[in-house]
Nucleic acid binder design. Sequence first.
DNA 1: TTAAATTCCTGTAAGC
DNA 2: TGCTTACAGGAATTTA
Length: 264
Amino acid sequence: MPELPEVETVRRVLETELTGRTITEIVVRTPTFYRPPPRAALTGLIGKTVTGFSRRGKFLSLLAGERSLVLHLGMSGRLTLTDRPAGNRSVKHCRFEIGFGGKTLRFVDPRRFGRVGGPLPKFGPEPLDPAFTPDFLKAAFQGRKAAIKALLMDQGVLAGLGNIYATEALFRAGIRPSRPAGRLRRAELESLHEAIRFVIREGIRLRGSTLDDEAFLDPYGKPGGFQNRVCIYGRREGACGHSLAKTKRPIASRSAVYCPVCQK
DNA sequence: TTAAATTCCTGTAAGC
DNA sequence: TGCTTACAGGAATTTA
């Protein structure tokens, strides 16, 4: 599922491939989005030239001068580049296509959790921004009783972490996902800060993580490499050699995996 | 203010 | 084998 490193990987590819190209065609293939895209936001792009792509957290924005189009991949969304013309009806789960005269950008989203258009929500800092510091974590967690993992995945606290990178960062920092955030000690905040930056940087460097066949692929259709560096996510035994445990209760309504030996 | 629960959806896995 | 059920996930929304 796309988290910050995956979205950043997509952003870099699209910026390289599409900047300077002019949008010639918009094909909305399935009008049955969970949140239907404002048609005008899409069709208004016709004739505009792409000036770049930006990313905030897991949100991606296509920039075309004054106009922009916000995209979120949800959990199964994929942006695919093809040399085929738009309008191929045999592509399954294709929600819309943007034609660039010879190149086509497809938004394919089987589970329809993806979003198109609309404003960006409020975010916490980017993990690789200088504003993200151990002191920031201390202030953000002050007095909070919620599980640390829930806060790490709260985009309003810190932008870009999802289940995979939060799980990995907590393992590397030796902190159990169920710990109340406000009770972390200074040394733990420091190693957590370091661990978050490490997994995000590695995730970007390795072009995201592709954990199974249906998982993330970049716009060329290429898998990422971070799955080979994963220590506990999706594994039965941790990279530490210990067998992993699940928290009794889900955290932020999803199961949380940890190493009962290494994570205190 | 915070936090927990609910909702969207469908491919996959597990259970019978 | 075929059917049913449970589950997974991110974020907006609702409820406590």
